[in-house]
């Protein structure tokens, strides 16, 4: 059990990173990575949503299995994820208005963040139990946080660097993302147990 959890953590953080290896959730990765602060906030929000969605979707999937409705899994999961994002949005608006403002339109867009739906579908496909599912969700979110914070710190530095006029802004960010993904590919052989 402990072995499996550690294996999942390493896979989700490094060798199977949701963003840089599996290319899920690129939209907030490019959109909210201009500042480390907001990137960290986004990462935390996504981690929370992913863990909660993994937990909730496990039970929803059990119900679907019971009723032999597994072909409806995608619709049901989207329903769960959308609801959770709504609650998180309300919570942040009340409790952390600064983060709510900084995340802006990307907060409701977590709903359509494919990393969230992706992790839930992976959980189901791999047949994880509730604990492992939740750990996988949280670890996937942490992997997202790691990637987006790394990327945001590189972008903050690149913003100040001299760069050809035609590459300024988004183009250089895309190149940076590509190089970062390349670096993470170096973890691909990494597996324990």
């Amino acid at each position: 059990m402990a072995q499996q959890i550690i294996g999942i953590l390493i896979a989700a953080l490094l060798s199977q990173n949701f963003i840089l290896v599996k290319f899920y959730g690129i939209c907030p990765f490019m959109g909210v990575s201009k500042k480390i602060d907001t990137a960290l906030g986004m990462g935390m929000a996504v981690t929370f949503v992913m863990a909660l969605a993994s937990f909730a979707c496990y039970w929803v999937y059990q119900l679907l299995l019971l009723l032999e409705l597994t072909y409806m899994q995608t619709v049901a999961f989207i329903l769960v994820i959308a609801s959770i994002v709504q609650v998180v949005e309300m919570f942040l608006k009340k409790m952390v208005p600064a983060l709510y403002k900084a995340l802006g339109v990307f907060l409701p867009l977590i709903t359509t963040n494919c990393a969230v739906l992706g992790v839930v579908l992976v959980n189901v496909a791999e047949g994880y139990d509730v604990l492992i599912s939740t750990v996988n969700g949280a670890a996937g979110g942490l992997g997202f946080t790691l990637a987006i914070v790394l990327f945001a710190s590189v972008r903050e530095r690149v913003d100040k660097a001299e760069c050809p006029e035609s590459f300024k802004g988004f183009p250089i960010a895309l190149i940076t993302a590509g190089l970062l993904a390349l670096a993470f590919m170096g973890f691909s052989g990494l597996s324990i147990f």
């Binding site: 929803v60 009723l67 409705l69 049901a76 329903l79 769960v80 609801s83 709504q86 309300m90």
Partner: peptide, 16 residues
């Protein structure tokens, strides 16, 4: 099933 699920989530959101 999906209607019921949506109803439950709707109620939770309303409360939230």
């Amino acid at each position: 099933f999906l209607g019921g699920l949506a109803l439950i989530f709707g109620l939770v959101l309303a409360a939230a």
